[in-house]
Amino acid sequence: MGVDRRKFVKFAGLSALGLAVNPPIKVLASEETYESAAGTSACSGSCLTCRPAHPPENATRWAMVVDLKTCREHPECNACIEACHVSHNVPDFPNPKDEIKWIWKEHFGHAFHETDHNYLSEHLKHSNALLLCNHCDNPACVKVCPTNATWKRKEDGIVMMDWHRCIGCRYCIAACPYGSRSFNYREPKEFFAENGRKLQADFPTRTKGVVEKCTLCEERLARGLWPSCVEACPYNCMTLGDLDNPDDPIRQIMHDKFTIRRKPGLGTQPQVYYII
């Protein structure tokens, strides 16, 4: 990986591939972002100004911290979801049963079911949580896959998918406790054609009959780019970092803030941490 990254940094300068960055959303939101980031207490490294231009190289355990506190202050903002779904050509099928989502919002009480109760603080009660694949350390989906079409990368802990190999048995969907996986009940390209939605040229669509999910933008990480969602968030709610590296800013955040995870009791060791 590391070698590749270094190769890429050189390479990116030479080629026109920088276009993969998704500029419009960022431009629109940049100023507000700066302010709100500044508005938070001590900079924990999770602000645009502090965030390094490129994600760390040689990360061995990617993890994400989602700052729900900040996020729920902007219930109308879906920038991360849009950025992700545009850059990965995720269709938005109208029929909810065909729905595909890599990153989405869900009612807090549902997302953190076990912490739900009738007297939950008002702002939490009516808020949404931002959900995505947890890239578990002990992923249930990987264990059940009969073809190794989904697996955990040893190098950096990303739970990866091979859409060329998936047979569409949906065992992983049954196994995932977080509802992070979606199945292509319909042909996505047909949807794009029918709805006139634009396709991102440098990323493939899926074909009908395979399961898909968030891959933590491993294709962007390989090019030294932050994941779309991280980059797109105008409020810097998401921080990605290498948990194995004690100097990584994410460790600082984890140290400073109380974070929780979804369904920790199942032993899957999810790697998306939430500040509530």
Binding site: L19, K189, E190, A193, L199, A201, P204, T205
Partner: peptide, 27 residues
């Protein structure tokens, strides 16, 4: 070949560099 079931050919891109309307063609 079934490459084009998922991968997007440049011919599917028109007018703009980034994205296009894809017309369903016999893949």
């Amino acid at each position: 070949p079934y490459c084009w079931d998922c991968h997007i050919a440049p011919t599917e891109i028109r007018d703009t560099d980034l994205a296009i309307h894809v017309e369903r063609e016999e893949d």
